[in-house]
Design a protein around this nucleic acid. Structure first.
Lengths: 118, 118
DNA sequence: AGCAGACATAGACATCTGTCAATATCGACG
DNA sequence: CGTCGATATTGACAGATGTCTATGTCTGCT
């Protein structure tokens, strides 16, 4: 149920069969790549795991900032990339912003790589 | 059974529990990232899927070159990155070079993302 | 030996990416 | 309504990345 015609990368991954079934077309590869790029950074991998493993399944930006020796804008930038890729959902409550993982996103990507269609 | 003390990225991935179990340490994230970066490119994703889905599980560089509108050195460069990451095994037979996928590599990465420990 | 073809390496170059400091926005609260 | 604290945006810059041309290194063949 996207509100626009633009699909997030994560919304386009489920359409491809596992890598070992048949070659990806150039188009499919171009659509999948942004999602993989989104997790191809150590800071973003840690952010993702921090949110994913956090109690209640969500984490406040204020907590995430403290976990890194990086400036606040840098963390904000990485969170934005993960959000735009469709891997993190964003919710603002009062002054704080909470992120939570899009579970099916990682699942679809894992299925693409691992060859499991489930 | 690595022959040197240097581990390929793929040899270090199995050591981490799934993302949603516990946060990655900075060290773990740094070790995993090269593997993810290796597949964070549309050409390399297609190369991987071409090799993975090829008959006999292996593909000759000569075949792979023809599948792209890119120069031979560029394809060679991408294959080198995939090989160094541990995702592709390389075997030279006569004049030709054959690549085949390291199946467990993608499996471990998928497990990391998908949360399946198997 | 010498040539030809398959693949790798080296170097150059434009573009992309991660980071920061500075600034803007937005909501709560006195 | 003005300030403060939390987060996002902007602009700048160094370093990484993808691509090419040119060249090197094997291997088989004649």
């Amino acid at each position: 149920m996207p509100k626009s015609l633009e699909l997030t990368p994560v919304e386009t991954v489920a359409c491809c069969s596992p890598l070992n079934r048949e070659p990806l077309t150039a188009d499919q590869a171009e659509r999948i790549t942004p999602l993989v790029k989104a997790i191809a950074d150590p800071v973003r991998l840690r952010l993702l795991s921090l949110v994913a493993s956090h109690a209640d399944g969500e984490a406040c930006v204020c907590d995430l900032n403290d976990a890194f020796d990086l400036s606040q804008p840098t963390i904000s930038h990485h969170l934005k990339l993960l959000h735009e890729a469709g891997l993190l959902d964003r919710e603002k409550r009062g002054v704080w912003v909470y992120y939570r993982v899009n579970a099916s996103a990682l699942g679809d990507l894992a299925a693409l790589l691992g060859g499991v269609t489930a």
